[in-house]
Design a protein around this nucleic acid. Structure first.
Lengths: 409, 409
DNA sequence: AGGGCTTAATTAATGACGTGATTTAACCTC
DNA sequence: GAGGTTAAATCACGTCATTAATTAAGCCCT
């Protein structure tokens, strides 16, 4: 009925209380920089005295720094506080279908270095990927002149289902991966704390933290690329389900007995609105580059070509139906359309999609949902992955590696 | 990003810590009665000393009582603890399509009194319902000889969407209710704390607390009656979404351009697997009693009547598809089939339903989900509603009415 | 029967924490 | 530069959970 009480991370002692308060303070400051102690007090509900105490601690640790003061009109000026963005760094990795990208950010999520490795489409072997990632890690560290000991963690977004557990396993349909122990394999080449998650989820995180999802508590971020996925956010947190494979929106059935899908089933949403499926329904020659083919399709429709327009109209309908299902089931306050194909299609079809969603969902829920395009582009997978260690840090996780950093530095 | 810090109910002071620990202890004891202080200490992670202290407090308040001891083998015997089931009472109300039922329970959820009011199918006026509920409240109180001041609260399960907010509004499609301020209307006739929720949700709660959902963290309880609904449980808590209309599984589209649905859309799940729809597809004469008609259909299929068997086969397929969607999206560890029609159909079709769900969902997620029948029957709506005030109580809610009870009693 | 043993529960001592009240700091205006 | 004003730090206090020590309440064996 209740989440099991984890013995390692109890909340029940006075010390846990402090950790929680510290965490609340950090979250508040992180998303509202710079701000004053007073504002923090109001925002968190903690007394000014406690804010003072905790902030002093944070400043001593170097996590927070003072940053000037606001002008006063007759009293002691309020001191502005900000995160010390050089306190630590995080790395985000985007393991995509066509490349591996590694980016290093500071605490404020400014990009400090990047490494890109194009992938041969036929070369999705685990060993290759692992090599590229490790190569990327050391590349960004040396490029940004950052010591590994000051890296809070590495977030990795991969395509496919990520089974969290004692041993993190990746089931990548697209890659032909089945139960790949990615963490263990990487562990051989690095000591950095690793956080592996589905790419749709990491991208969703990016939109929630810095993009179209800001401020929303309940949202769904839909990823439409060659295939279709989604990240479900409930109460501000990614819903992973019992074995962290939630969000497989693309294989939701919208037409019983419909078009065959690469998952083996039929009538899946992905068999209608994924880029591959859209192009397929249009009758293009397979093998061509999908991105330019879809652009060409959109172009043809704009020029009045009837069949193209028809395919797009249908796509808007199917997509709208898919969104309507999400609205009915989750009642999110926001739905965000992302992924390269989603953005391309959405730009043109958003009104039609909205209308289809309206027609296929219940009035009350629909009226409380806004459907918007993502604001960060497909690049956001790595950014979102990098927020994984940031989240742990803000929650006051015991800093394993950073510990060393502190005592060593 | 984070749930907003509610100023009224802060968690940040040492006192809140005690309230939380007390709550953790109560939950543990409630679902594992009777048990000893030691067991509580192990289960909650609190030190034996703290358990002792809090338990002493609870015993002084009369919430908890000692109940004998376990035999020892050479030491002081452990004292057994249990909730004092007469400390307070709760009332559950089931506002159904054919009747209003009011039940009074003690803290341990033993039924102490019940009142039933059949409803004329044409008489779903708000005034009538309100009258019946109020009548039921005083009836069960006097029948069980319980004073209103010792009632912790009243949970009410209604058909239709319940919009929680400053003013609770009920949108009942079936009743033709639109934005009915049920709480305010009842408030005129009673001072008891009221908790209004969708009947599917309250029934889901009952299964989670006492039925087939016990122990699950992520589950979906599917309600199939004349129509179709669901209650989504994530992390052990009902997912309500941003305006508490989540769980409208019945109006999820499974066939784009399919059968018309009473919601105005087409191809909804409800248009295929709700009792009304199943009977419709079978071609029965409308107006007949649904429960017996469905029983007759099942009977006919058993006797080998081909058309009946065909309709049922199709139903299993559609239902399986609907379940597969839930599995793909939520990755629950358990799916529970309830509602009078769900139980009737499930009894016969469960293997076929499971198979259809398997064929239409992703392997990994399906393999981790069990699909079971509800264990409590359709009677559970009131029981689940009554758990609403229980939950608040276990969470250590400030007892508004009970306050009076304490100081007066 | 009663001493010794074993285990449960309570109590005492300690340290950590948040809060409100008080004091100090920092700046403005006249 | 004095008086006023607001921010931040400090202090005194009460609360809490924890560990360690103590007391309670049974066994078992002679």
């Amino acid at each position: 009925m209740r989440e099991h009480v984890t013995p390692e991370r109890r909340r029940g002692t006075v010390r846990d209380l402090r950790r929680d308060n510290r965490s609340v303070l950090l979250w508040s400051l992180y998303f509202d920089q710079p701000c004053t102690r007073q504002e923090l007090s109001r925002a968190t509900g903690l007394s000014p005295a406690s804010v003072s105490n905790v902030v002093r601690e944070l400043i001593e640790e170097g996590v927070v720094a003072e940053a000037g003061a606001v002008d006063s009109d007759g009293g002691r000026p309020r001191v502005l506080l900000r995160m010390n963005s050089d306190y630590g760094y995080v790395i985000g990795v985007d393991v995509g279908e066509t490349r591996v990208r590694v980016e290093l950010f500071d605490l404020a999520m400014n990009e400090r270095a990047r490494a890109d490795f194009p992938l041969d489409p036929r070369e999705h072997g685990v060993t290759t990927i692992v090599e590229r990632i490790l190569e990327g890690l050391s590349a960004v560290l040396s490029d940004a002149d950052v010591d590994a000991s000051s890296v809070l963690g590495v977030g990795i977004g991969v395509p496919g289902v990520v089974e969290q557990g004692d041993e993190v396993l990746v089931h990548g349909q697209t890659y032909g991966w089945e139960g790949v122990p990615l963490e263990r394999l990487l562990r051989a080449g690095t000591d950095l704390p690793l956080h592996i998650d589905n790419g749709a989820n990491t991208m969703g995180r990016a939109e929630m933290w810095f993009g179209a999802g800001q401020g929303a508590q309940h949202a769904v971020v839909c990823l439409i690329g060659s295939g279709v996925g989604a990240s479900i956010i409930a109460h501000g947190r990614t819903h992973r389900g019992s074995t962290s494979s939630a969000g497989e929106w693309g294989h939701t059935t919208i037409v019983v007995g419909g078009r065959g899908c690469r998952c083996g089933s039929a009538g899946c949403l992905e068999a209608y609105v994924g880029a591959e499926a859209v192009l397929d329904r249009y009758g293009r020659i397979p093998g061509q580059d999908e991105e330019s083919a879809l652009a060409a399709l959109l172009d043809a429709a704009t020029r009045g070509q009837e069949e193209a327009a028809h395919v797009l109209d249908e796509t808007a309908l199917y997509l709208g139906v898919g969104l309507a299902d999400l609205i009915n089931l989750f009642n999110p306050e926001r739905i965000i359309l992302g992924g390269w194909a989603g953005l391309l299609l959405g730009e043109r079809l958003l009104p039609a999609i909205r209308d289809a969603a309206r027609r296929n969902s219940l009035k009350h829920a629909f009226s409380e949902t806004s459907i918007e395009l993502g604001r960060l582009g497909p690049e956001a997978v790595a950014l979102g992955a990098a927020t994984l260690p940031i989240e742990l840090f803000l929650n006051g996780a015991p800093l394993s590696v950073t510990d060393r950093h502190r005592s060593a530095g």
